[in-house]
Nucleic acid binder design. Structure first.
Length: 492
RNA sequence: GGGCCGUUAGCUCAGUCCGGUAGAGCAGCGGACUUUUAAUCCGUUGGUCGCGCGUUCGAUUCGCGCACGGCCCA
């Protein structure tokens, strides 16, 4: 314990000194009667003459963020959950004893203050303390006030420090909360109900992704953390819950990058008696609601690009996107061997038994996706990469499916649901054979889900929205770790 | 999995190319100061230079390996 650095030793010395004087460094029961934000709202525009009329005293609490010591008087800034306010503590106001104790204060300590408001010479609204109490003593120093905390590793591992020191981080997570709240509000208004389905599943399903595996001791069975709630939500539609959504965590045992965290937040929603085209309309409506409510405008800046959400958004087929945006010639698109050669020449690893639908999808990811800055729906995905989607009536190799791209990122995946149990069984079988040949992302055969489909899933459309990526775009954050409070890190 | 970069005081960073056991600012500590706000002024403490091995008389510096992190690629 005593191997701590000099600065920590100094603080611990103060702690000992104060304790030996019988001081409680962690008292309970202090109550504030106003927050910084309320002070600023009520008195932020008053000049000193107006403030003199206010004879009330106020009691605030907050963390000490800076100290300017003048001997017999001290200026500090305190910060509470709503803002920052200066306090002026004078020996002749708080008394010799309290002032002597106050001299032990460190940056980072929580204090309670009572006093009246005034403006300083430099016109800053300030509370002139008539009493000061220590509410919580820090025993570790805060990062420096001016440069803040920059080291990204420390910011993620000790997010509390990041939040204390970096106001923009705090704003990002407050905005994240408001985004999620507004999404729920939208779906409530649209008469959806929110449901919760299992995170621990005996057969993981709903997305082609490698799952995390765990074990239930009492039941004596393997369980998987869900990669998607999809198959359970469709069971509920079968059960007659016609408009539902779930907004919660998914887990995928895959790499970590600026766009991927092993656990991430997903919104999925389902509408009975609707098609994927209806969902594209609903998605536009949702985004307009979010943008207007949160920003009061339809354009935002993301990493130097202006993104304009004005509807309608273009709807372009995957093949057209490859041709017009990816710059791939029509003759190549229609020639399987040429496509595979092209993909390999771009550095993609294509297995010999890989289907052409998969090659197309991966070429799309590589050549088109990063270029889709403005909101764009891409439609008509190959059936091969859409094992839960309904086939188009006019082309059985194409799915009634869309994805939405914004700022070069896949944000949304939606489709008309496959509700033919026989077709679904065939798709599962195809996935199972992929799994047998080593594809750990392929879907598991799910007899229980097939049984549910036998009872009749009405024509239904469903959609998933990656909430973390959406929050990235709406908060202008370059990495998913900037919008997840505690991103996954290696053990140190 | 591969490539590149980083890891030095509590924080933010120099120094390392060209080897001789380290500096600054802030923070801290002591002192002065009752309207400052990156307060100011005087003085001052603080380091297993990420870890290990190697080369060398001598390694924070050079080499190799490892750990953690970042960016890019797969």
């Amino acid at each position: 314990m005593d191997e701590s650095s000099g600065i920590i030793k100094e603080i611990k010395k103060k702690v000992q000194e104060l304790r030996s004087r019988g001081f409680n460094l962690y008292p309970s029961g202090f109550r504030r009667d106003i927050t910084v934000e309320e002070v600023l709202n009520r008195f932020g525009k008053m000049d000193n003459n107006a403030l003199k009329e206010i004879t009330d005293t106020f009691t605030l609490a907050g963390r000490v963020m800076s100290i300017r010591d003048f001997g017999k008087a001290v200026f500090i800034h305190i910060k509470d959950g709503t803002g920052k306010l200066q306090a002026y503590i004078r020996k002749d106001r708080v008394g010799d004893d309290d002032f002597a104790i106050f001299k032990f204060i460190d940056i980072g300590d929580h204090v309670g203050l009572t006093g009246q408001l005034f403006r300083t010479k430099t016109d800053e609204l300030t509370i002139l303390a008539s009493s000061v109490v220590l509410l919580t003593k820090v025993q570790s120093p805060l990062p420096e006030k001016y440069h803040g905390l920059i080291d990204v590793e420390t910011r993620y591992r000790q997010r509390y420090l990041d939040l204390i020191v970096n106001d923009n981080v705090r704003h990002t997570f407050i905005l994240r909360s408001r985004i999620i709240q507004t999404i729920r509000e939208f779906f409530d208004k649209e008469n959806f109900i929110e449901v919760e389905t299992p995170m621990m599943q005996s057969i993981p399903g709903g997305a082609t992704a490698r799952p995390f595996k765990t074990y239930h001791h009492t039941l004596g069975m393997d369980l998987y953390l869900r990669v998607a709630p999809e198959l359970y939500l469709k069971r509920l539609v079968i059960g007659g819950l016609e408009k539902i959504y779930e907004l919660n965590r998914n887990f995928r045992n895959e790499g970590i990058s600026t766009n991927h965290n092993p656990e991430f937040t997903m919104l999925e929603f389902y509408v009975a008696y609707a098609t994927y085209e209806d969902l594209m309309d609903l998605t536009e409506k949702l985004f307009l609601y979010l943008l207007k409510k949160l920003f009061g405008q339809l354009t935002i800046e993301y990493q130097g690009n202006t993104v304009n959400f004005t509807t309608p958004w273009p709807r372009i087929s995957l093949m057209d996107a490859l041709k017009d945006i990816g710059g791939i010639g029509e003759n190549v698109l229609l020639d399987n061997k040429a496509l595979i050669d092209l993909a390999r020449s771009k550095g993609l690893e294509i297995q010999d038994n890989e289907g052409i639908g998969s090659v197309l999808a991966r070429l799309f990811e590589h050549t088109v996706e990063p270029k889709l800055i403005q909101p764009t729906f891409v439609v008509d995905y190959p059936i091969e990469v859409s094992p839960l989607s309904r086939r188009k009536d006019e082309n059985s190799e194409i799915a009634e499916r869309f994805e939405l791209f914004i700022a070069g990122k896949e944000i949304v995946n939606g489709f008309s649901e496959l509700n033919d149990p026989d077709d679904q069984r065939e798709r599962f079988l195809k996935q199972a054979s992929l799994r047998d040949s080593g594809d750990e992302e392929a879907l598991f055969m799910d007899e229980d889900y097939l049984r549910a489909l036998e009872y009749g899933l009405p024509p239904t459309a469903g959609e998933g929205i990656g909430i973390d990526r959406l929050v990235m775009i709406l908060t202008d954050s370059p990495s998913i770790r900037d919008v997840i409070l505690f991103p996954q890190m290696r053990k140190k």
